[in-house]
């Protein structure tokens, strides 16, 4: 049986415990403390951040142990392109290295594409991709500058996901937005309109949306995002986007209610009902 009480603590950072510091002569506590790898103004935040991640209920479920086998990193598509690897994150976590975690979360953590190959193959059954998501979630919750920076180009993606349920719309597939997509993106972006028109479905003949959702669905999607706390996270990191989405939400909700009201009163005929909010 897993002992939950034991699980809640990770071993102290071994570098901090290294006695050779003493052998080489006394160093002030301040210098020995590896937090000194962090900028003074960030130390408290880095500690708070790491403590928050560790106390999340998922943390000890997801992090089990590590054989240092490298299976996660060698199968990782992101590791192929960036100086990033899931094993390094697991190792920092297992050793409780707060400065390394801080560095990782402020740069590398965003390289992962959440393909879950690592989680599926890890012989220790770590939920590695989940741990990455945990770090990212807290990066957003803490409104870390790196999260702001990384999410900035995704404002439109966020907007379309939340308001329309579409993620990437066809016209977003531009070579400068997705350099890692290679020559394919260049080719696709050239004749986007033509390709799109070739799809014999009426609604898909445009490139600024992926598919339509009805007014009712759109309001439901947005309600889910609001209720599950996604909008609260966005509020901290991108106030403008938050305001914009909330405005759209209020407006749509009102329209929907008006329509429902009219329908109830018998003021609307069936053919007058909109099948898409875009047509309103």
């Amino acid at each position: 049986m897993v002992n939950k009480a034991l699980l809640s603590t990770l071993p102290d950072d071994p570098r901090y415990l290294d006695a050779s510091y003493n052998v080489q002569g006394p160093l002030p506590e301040e210098d020995r403390n590896l937090l000194s790898n962090l900028k003074p103004e960030e130390r408290e935040l880095a500690k708070q951040f790491w403590e928050a991640v560790k106390s999340d209920f998922r943390f000890n479920e997801y992090l089990r142990g590590c054989l240092n086998c490298g299976v996660c990193t060698s199968g990782c598509p992101a590791a192929k392109f960036y100086d990033f690897g899931p094993r390094e994150m697991i190792q920092y976590m297992m050793r409780n290295e707060v400065d390394k975690i801080w560095e990782f979360v402020n740069k590398k953590v965003w390289a992962c594409v959440q393909c879950y190959t690592c989680s599926m193959r890890c012989p220790f059954n770590n939920e590695i991709a989940g741990l990455i998501m945990l770090l990212r979630e807290y990066a957003v919750k803490f409104a870390l500058p790196s999260a702001k920076e990384v999410l900035a180009p995704y404002r439109r993606v966020l907007l379309t996901v939340i308001t329309m349920g579409n993620q990437v719309t066809p016209d977003m597939i531009q070579p400068d937005a997705f350099p890692d997509w290679g020559p394919q993106a260049v080719e696709e972006s050239k004749n986007m309109d033509v390709y799109r028109k070739a799809i014999p479905v009426d609604l898909l003949q445009r490139t600024d949306i992926g598919w339509h959702s009805s007014l009712q669905t759109a309001v439901e999607i947005m309600t889910i995002f609001i209720e599950s706390g996604v909008l609260d996270s966005i509020k901290k990191i991108d106030k403008d986007l938050y305001d914009m989405i909330m405005d759209i939400y209020e407006e749509r909700k009102q329209t929907l209610e008006e329509i429902k009201e009219k329908w109830k009163k018998g003021e609307l005929k069936e053919e007058d009902l909109p099948d898409s909010w875009l047509e309103l």
Binding site: V71, T73, S74, G75, A79, G85, R87, E88
Partner: peptide, 13 residues
């Protein structure tokens, strides 16, 4: 083969 040389961080083989 695809592996990681775990003696060097993030070194894919």
């Amino acid at each position: 083969i695809k592996g990681e040389d775990t003696m060097n961080l993030n070194r894919a083989l």
